[in-house]
Structures are given as C-alpha cells and as structure tokens.
Nucleic acid binder design. Structure first.
Length: 600
RNA sequence: GUCCCCGUAGCUCAGGUGGAUAGAGCGUUGGAUUCCUAAUCCAAAGGCCACAGGUUCGAAUCCUGUCGGGGACACCA
C-alpha cells in the first residue's frame, strides 16, 4: 500500500488547517520523510532521490511492531549500499523521535517501528476532534473529477441491470470527494437515437388507448411496459384527440420530448430510492442542437483524425446479409489502439451514437481535469474507441486528460439458490423499486459493494436479508448499534460519558482496535487512488470484526467490559474508544451511502 | 476469428500499482452465555493462488502462451 508524502502544510481544505491535526500515518510518513531528507543532506542518499515507492504500513504480523517501512529496500540501490546497512542509518535518524521506542531491521530490510502507546491513544483524540472529517484527505485537492454513471436509456424504469453501476458510481464519487477531489456526478441522457423514437411511438399507442381505443397486444418493436399507460393518459389529457390520427411527423417530436421527460422523472425517483442524486443531466439532443458534434468533427478533421473511408466487412463470423461497403466519415481510433476505425456518422448522414459521445466527452474534458465513466460490461467493446477519442481530443490540449472506464459486470439475481427468471419481451423485469422495497436500500448498496465491480456476482434475495455474519451490512451495522447502545447504557445507568481523563489506562487490547481504526485514512487514499470503493466496504467489515472481538473479551473477562461499575475513569476511557470507533464506522458507511443505525 | 473481464480453501469471495508465514465468511469439527446487544466470540481442519514458461534479490500480484467460465464484435444505443 502506498501513502503519499503530503506534508500537512499542503493540506488545502479548510478542515485540516482549522483543526491543525494530522492523522497518525500521515504524521509518521512525515517523520520518515524528514529522516530520509537528513540522509540526503549528509550524503548517504544522492540528491534528488525519489521517495515515491516508499511505503509505511502495518506489519503483517503484529508481533513485528506497530509500523513497517520498506524505505531501505527501495532506496538501497540509489544509495549504492545494501538494504540492511541503509536501514541502520534510517533507524538511527528515527530514534531521535521520542515516540518511536524501537526501530528494528527485519527480513530482507524491513524497518519495524514500535511506538509509544501514547501515539495510538492520541489517534483516538484525533478521530474525535476531526469527527465526520476523519479520513478526509487533501490528496485530490485541486483536481476536479467528472464521474458519469447510470446513464440508462430514458425508455423505462430502472431495472436490476442498472443497479450495480449506479451504486458503484455513486460510492466512487463520494470516495473521491472524501479524498479531496471536487466531483461532478453526471448522467448522460440518450434522448436522440432510435430508441426514444420507439418510446414516442409506444407512448402514442398508449395515448390512443387512453382515448378509448382498443389497441390489443402491443406489437413487436414497441415498448410493452405498463409504465407507459400513465404517460398515454397524461398526453390524452394534454392534447385531447389532436394527434390521434395525425401523421407521425406531426406528433413525434412532441411525444418524444414529453415521454423522455416523464421517463427521466421516473428514473430520478428510482435513483432517489437508492440515495443517488446527480449534479448534471447532460442531454444528447441538446448536444446536437448546440452543434457540438460538428465542432468535434471539424477539429478532428483539421488534425487528420477523421477521414472519409470504407469499412471492411466484419471478420470471423458471417457478415450481416445486407452488408455493403459504404463510405463514411471515420475516426482514426486505430491510431490509439482500437482494432478498427469507427464511423461518426451513418450513411443517412445522421450522427452515430459514437459521434455524439465523442463530442460529449470532448465537452466533459473541457470542464473537468479527470474523467471516469461507469459502464455495464456489455459495452466493453466500445471502451477502446472512446478512450481513443479522449486521447485524441486531449492531444491538442498539450496534456492528456486522465480517463478511466470502469466496467461493471452483470448481476445474477437469485432467490434461495435458484436463478430468478425475467422475461424482457413481456416487460416483466425486476426493477430497482422492487428490490429496494423487498430488501432495503442499505442492503442493496452494501451488497453491490462487497465484490469488486469487474467480477460477476450473484445477488440472492434470500441470503441478503439474513441477519448473520455472512451478511456484511448487518454485521457492520450491528457493530455500530452495539457501540451506540453501550454508550447510551453507560450514560443512563452509570452516568458516565466518554472522556480522555484516564485514557492512559487503556491497554494492548484497546490499542489493537485503535490500530485498525487508524488505517481508515490510508484506506480512503488507496481506495480513491485505485478507484475502488469496495475496499471501504471490506475495511468496515474488518473494523466491525475487531470491535466485536474486543467486545466479546468482556464475556469471559468481565474486567475487559466497556462498562465497569467499580471504575468510572476506565469506563469513560473505554467509552471514548467506543465512540471513536463508531465515528470511523459512520464515516466509512457515509462513503458507501449506507445508514449507520443506532439501534437494531 | 478478434477484443475485454474473470480463474485464489468444498462453496461465495478479499488480497493484485512486486515484499516477511496467502486471508475472511459459509460449511465441517470442538468450545464460550449467572452476558455491557450471542444478530456475537474463540479454536481446529481445509491451498501446486487454473497450467507452462519469462522478468528479479523476491511473483498470487508484472510479461508471453495454453486451458476453462462470462461478455462484446458493421452506419444499435
């Protein structure tokens, strides 16, 4: 795990400066950096040595100490010495810090540090003082990130297929915010293609139905879902019989605009059920109206990145029967690693989806420093071309715009071990509203975040509501509720509240728990760097495990309970510990968008 | 045929930007309850990290290939 050598003075956001508090890992990272700089000053390390690969982490085996650094192994080469000799030099410098009680060299050159217990106890005060801000990093300060997620076609309510990407995107956005980035949560509305025309026609059908016509079975090529019935009724109310028998070109634009708007209302309310709210809803139609694709094409042609050419027939499988060579404006995506150049316009002269998407990303890249798209795995085939597009567009800017596409794999819905059958044809699919109603928002969100997004997962309705250790969301919430309950009970029955007065009475069991809590800021930074919010979910599970283990010590050793009737000082100190752990659980759950409950 | 993702305990999965003895839950076996929330805890057993090469002080992690699972492959979005 890496950590960034960001000195506290670089802490750009107000919270850091106001409180003037540094978390434990950041502080000792600074200590080590100072020691390394001293070695540069006295010539042990060459001028300009990069410390980028130096890590500070908990040793795998706690008996090795409190902290471990690989500095000597990483820097032995530039120092032209062997790791153990360099470690010796680093250790000498570090020992001038009174809170470092020992610095031992181990294995191939690890430097294991032992801290005075007061260092760990101090972290409890840091957690408490920083409160909701504990874990906030300045790592991303000054970098704006645009996260585009969901972007479901506005042709119906949200169903299961959208759920995972929605949750992952939202948690990622929150994570990046906590890591200090300024984040825009964006939704791209595909309101310009053939699908929304189909939507408009389907709405027209329902409109005629609302006017009393018997429309019978919904024909092939129309959306059959019952959710369009209220749209038809609404339209009938708005325009009466005006468009009942009118030719399509008269009503299509109006029906399309109305239907899309209603569908977006539906989608927004579905997203709200999951606690998801976007900052920007970007319309593809508006993009066209503003002439953005033309601008993009012009720019690309000037840079010889778009040319008129003929695509080859698809290889490997039999080409479609109606395949014929056509000259189209093609984007040179092969120049950036794609297998084939991609058309930006269709043979009828209209823009392809890609042509518009290219212009859309051009616009996003102009507004943000970094871009992230969350897509379903079924769009994997288009990753290369859009990455190529962003690479091409940012060539002109002098420096490339970092751009990540996160692919989210399918979720297999199960019920008691059996796959849930869904029929798309009848429009009978499991919606997000169904899911949230059945198992709750917190369960849906947490479960979606307990697997890395690029791996396929199962979601079993039966398992996911089980109240057991096998169900992480319950387990983590239980730990938090347990803490809150203990604090309540101590106040009500013993009149004791958390206090630092007797903090130095806390022993090694408590410090083991603090050690885990102190990881949180590191987890935030590494998860943000990797763009992997699921790491926070796993961390919270580990922290909950440690809390529950500690709590259970009191079952066999009553003197290890939080609440001790005979020792109010120690009770208050343990409550202070409990309260700090609760704070970290809350801060982590907030990233995931899961509620930290006080009672269960 | 090409491209993308995945392959870790019996099962479901972490760990993967190279570091010390590969982790957790479920399941199995054996324990803990005059209990601050047992929706919990402790312990045992269980592994050629798919396979084969390569890179280096060091590989589950990086590279190449093979096998297996999933997905995508004209002007659909």
């Amino acid at each position: 795990m890496h950590w960034s050598f960001v000195p506290p003075s670089l802490c750009a956001n107000g919270a850091c400066e106001m409180t003037d508090m540094t978390t434990l890992y950041a502080a000792y990272a600074g200590t080590i950096q100072t020691a390394l700089q001293a070695l540069v000053a006295d010539g042990t390390l060459p001028e300009g040595t990069s410390f980028a690969n130096v890590t500070l982490e908990p040793p795998r085996d706690p008996s090795h100490g409190d902290l471990a650094t690989n500095a000597a192994m990483v820097l032995a080469k530039p120092a032209k010495t062997n790791p153990r000799a360099l470690a010796e030099a680093i250790a000498t410098k570090l020992k001038s810090d009174p809170t470092i009680v020992s610095a031992e060299i181990a294995g191939p050159g690890f430097l294991n540090l032992r801290l005075d217990p007061s260092a760990w106890l101090g972290e409890l005060e840091t957690i408490t003082k920083l409160g909701d801000e504990y874990g906030r990093s300045s790592m991303g300060a000054g970098t704006t990130v645009n996260v585009e997620y969901v972007s479901a076609n506005p042709t119906g309510p949200m169903h299961m297929g959208h759920c995972r990407g929605a949750v992952v995107g939202d948690a990622l956005a929150s994570l990046l915010e906590l890591a200090g980035h300024e984040v825009t949560r964006e939704y791209y509305i595909n309101d310009a293609g053939g699908q929304v025309d189909t939507l408009a026609r389907s709405a027209h059908l329902r409109y005629r139905e609302a006017l009393g016509e018997n429309i019978g079975e919904i024909p092939e090529g129309y959306y059959p879902g019952a959710y369009l019935i209220p749209i038809g009724e609404y339209l009938a109310q708005e325009v009466g019989e005006k468009y009942r028998d009118a030719p399509e070109e008269e009503w299509l634009p109006y029906f399309r605009a109305e239907a899309v708007e209603k569908m977006m209302d539906l989608i927004k309310s579905d997203l709200a059920l999951l606690g998801i709210h976007h900052d920007v809803f970007a319309s593809e139609a508006a993009l066209h109206a503003a002439g953005k694709p033309d601008e993009a094409e012009k720019w690309l042609r000037e840079h010889d990145l778009v040319y008129d050419g003929v695509l080859e027939a698809p290889k490997g499988k039999a080409p479609p029967e109606d395949w014929e060579p056509v000259e189209l404006p093609l984007f040179r995506s092969t120049k950036f690693g794609d297998d084939q150049d991609r058309p930006i316009k269709k043979s009828d002269g209209k823009w392809t989806y890609f042509g518009a998407d290219l212009a859309y990303h051009m616009q996003k890249a102009a507004d943000a420093d970094e871009l992230i798209d969350i897509w379903g795995a079924d769009h994997a085939g288009t990753v290369k071309r859009i990455k190529a597009a962003v690479a091409a567009l940012s060539e002109g800017k002098g420096k490339p715009t970092p751009f990540d596409v996160k692919l989210v794999q399918m979720v297999q819905l199960m019920r008691g071990g059996e796959p849930v059958k869904m029929s798309k044809r009848s429009g009978n699919f499991i919606t997000i509203a169904d899911m949230v109603e059945e198992v709750g928002k917190d369960v849906v969100r947490f479960t979606m975040l307990t697997r890395k997004p690029e791996a396929q997962m199962e979601f079993d309705f039966a398992k996911v509501v089980e109240a057991s250790k096998d169900n992480p969301v319950w387990y983590v919430q239980y730990a938090h509720a347990r803490i809150q309950s203990t604090i309540r009970k101590a106040a009500d029955e013993e009149g004791v509240t958390p206090s630092t007065d007797a903090l130095n009475q806390l022993g090694s069991d408590e410090i083991a728990l603090i050690r885990r809590a102190a990881q949180f800021p590191r987890e935030v930074e590494s998860a943000a760097k990797a763009r992997e919010p699921h790491r926070i979910a796993f961390y919270l599970y580990d922290l909950a495990t440690d809390l529950n283990s500690f709590y259970s010590l009191g079952n066999t050793e009553p003197e290890k309970r939080f609440i001790l009737k005979h020792d109010k000082g120690l009770t208050a100190a343990r409550l202070f510990l409990a309260s700090a752990i609760g704070q970290v659980l809350r801060n982590g759950l907030r990233v995931l968008g899961v509620e930290a409950v006080d009672r269960m």
